[in-house]
Amino acid sequence: MLYHIVKPAYWYQCQPDEAYVPETFAEEGFIHLSTREQVAGVLERYYSGIRPLIALHLDESLLTAELRYEPSTNGELFPHLYGPLNRDAIVSTEEL
């Protein structure tokens, strides 16, 4: 299972019948994802004091875009999705 964190205002404005792309996709060229073990650190580093948030729970085996694990913060390998997130890979959402 992989995870993507998104602000509710952005998530709820996205069309539910279209592939998801975050606000930073055009600028960065990929979607930031996390493993279960990485979520707490991502929340602390990038979303401290920001609530509510939504965690998208993703089934890695259903992703249709290219997935790469690449070095990021402190050389830790993070999953990056190089294309839109197909909605059928989102198995659940969780408000944080």
Rank of each mutant, 00 (worst) to 15 (best):
E66Y: 04
V39G: 01
I31S: 02
T64G: 03
C14F: 02
L67F: 06
A19C: 10
L62T: 11
Y47N: 14
P52S: 13
T64C: 02
A26S: 12
N86Q: 06
Y82V: 03
E70Q: 14
A9R: 13
F78I: 08
A89E: 00
Y69N: 13
Q38W: 05
L2A: 06
L77Y: 10
H32K: 12
P71K: 01
L33F: 09
N74D: 09
R87T: 01
E37H: 05
V91M: 01
E44D: 15
L81M: 02
E66I: 03
E76Y: 04
E60M: 09
G41A: 11
E44A: 15
C14I: 06
Y10T: 10
Y12N: 15
V91Q: 07
A9L: 15
N74R: 09
L62W: 10
E94F: 04
L43A: 10
I90W: 02
T24P: 03
Q38N: 08
P52K: 08
V21S: 11
L96S: 04
S92P: 00
A19G: 09
P16A: 08
R36V: 00
P52F: 10
I54C: 08
C14E: 10
A26F: 12
E95N: 03
R68M: 06
E28N: 14
A65F: 02
S48G: 13
L2N: 05
Q13E: 13
L53A: 11
H4T: 04
Y82L: 04
F78P: 06
M1A: 10
A26W: 14
T35H: 11
N86I: 04
V91S: 01
E66A: 09
P52Q: 09
I31K: 07
L96M: 09
R51L: 13
D59Y: 11
Y10F: 15
F78G: 08
T24K: 14
H4N: 06
G49Q: 14
P84A: 15
Q13G: 10
L56T: 01
D88H: 04
F78H: 13
T24D: 13
A89I: 00
L81D: 01
D88W: 00
E27A: 12
P22V: 07
T35L: 11
I54E: 03
Y46T: 06
P71R: 04
Y47A: 11
L56M: 12
S48T: 14
Y46I: 08
D17L: 06
D59F: 07
R68G: 08
A40T: 11
F30E: 10
Y46G: 14
S61E: 07
L62D: 09
E28M: 15
H57Y: 02
G41M: 01
L43M: 11
A9W: 13
L96C: 06
E95H: 04
Q13R: 14
Y82A: 06
E76A: 07
R87G: 02
M1C: 07
R51H: 14
H4K: 09
I90K: 01
K7M: 12
L33D: 05
Q38R: 05
H32F: 10
A26G: 11
P8W: 05
